[in-house]
Write a protein that binds this DNA or RNA. Structure first.
Lengths: 193, 193
DNA sequence: CTCCGCGATGTTAGTCGCTAACATGTTAGC
DNA sequence: GCTAACATGTTAGCGACTAACATCGCGGAG
């Protein structure tokens, strides 16, 4: 039956660590929660923690949305201009995540925005997302070849997106996120005239 | 004669630490250079280092440009639209720094973009700059009161600026930075049509 | 069924950024 | 000169993270 049992056990350990970590972060805050404390709560040693998550930040920030975005971008017709393509692809992907996961998403956004180290890592991740956008919009395999206008558009769109998400979180998550993102893109467009 | 001698000595120590740090960063890279090593090179202990610079990152990243930008923004006439105001204020401040300091500026940008912890801190600083932009553009004393369109514009403008600077650095600093920034703003405008 | 091997885990010790407590020497103002 | 303030050094410690090595347990080969 191969290593199935091992894989399952590893997956469970991983999930347990993440779950305990998120619980503790919620209770005492990100920075006040030590890795050793998380490991103890999950019943493992701190070295095991680092075997599952390369850094403390990685427990919170998974890169799971990039493939979604890439796929959504690929489905956009060439007839749309650059910004419209990003706007629709983002809206599409976001709507899915939002519908399925709303509360979890809000909790994660809250956590990330509240802890400077997490914010910092998020920007770093966004660099990756930006490179993805540039490749997709320029149609090249290497984002270094993307022309300046594509880079500007990619950066501006991500700025709009993060602004919208931040506004949503500051409002306590009461508004409808996809609508807020859409309005933010509208603001950019109407302001440029 | 007051504490003049003390002040002078402190200023010299501070300058020596920073100078040795930048030299070592250039020679061996940011992350490979330990604070203890810098302190030793400057002839002080590592605690003294931290008395002058709260973190290792602060040796590289000083917040000296924000007041310049604020002043330049204040001088913009109300007749200009939001983006034009930011564009001109940024262009003005940048031109000054660029003319005076070009090589030093390039070296700093290179260093910051090459080291993840420095990049991370830079984003964090940009949040402050963004709040400043929002206050200035909205005319309120608190950036939390700025309307959504102002926030979107502020975020998008900073994204354009960082994109331009990044492009300048990637090109080895050969191009004319103020011109590149201007072109980047043009790209944003022409792309939104 | 037994034994061997490999993979997951724990233990320990170490590095590096950073902080706090306390001791020491140096300067400033009288 | 004397003393109070202050810059600096020493030491010890915390927390994120890494590496070396021992151990334990399950899976498969004989």
């Amino acid at each position: 039956m191969g290593g199935d049992w091992r894989e399952l056990k590893k997956a469970r350990t991983r999930a347990r660590i993440q779950q305990e970590a998120l619980r503790l972060f919620g209770e005492q805050g990100y920075e006040a929660t030590t890795v050793a404390r998380i490991a103890a709560a999950a019943g493992v040693s701190h070295t095991t923690f680092f075997r599952y998550f390369p850094t403390k930040e990685d427990v919170v920030l998974g890169d799971e949305y990039d493939p979604l975005l890439e796929e959504a971008l690929r489905r956009r017709p060439e007839s749309e201009d650059l910004i419209e393509r990003v706007r629709n692809a983002v809206g599409e992907g976001l709507a899915a995540v939002y519908a399925a996961d709303r509360d979890a998403l809000l909790a994660r956004v809250r956590l990330v925005l509240s802890a400077p180290p997490l914010r910092a890592r998020l920007w770093e991740q966004l660099l990756g997302t930006q490179a993805l956008l540039e490749r997709a919009l320029a149609g090249t395999g290497d984002s270094a070849e993307a022309p300046m206008r594509v880079r500007v558009v990619a950066a501006a769109c991500l700025a709009v997106l993060t602004t919208a998400i931040t506004a949503w979180e500051r409002d306590g998550g009461r508004g409808d996120l996809p609508a807020i993102v859409d309005e933010a893109f509208d603001h950019l467009r109407t302001e440029l005239r």
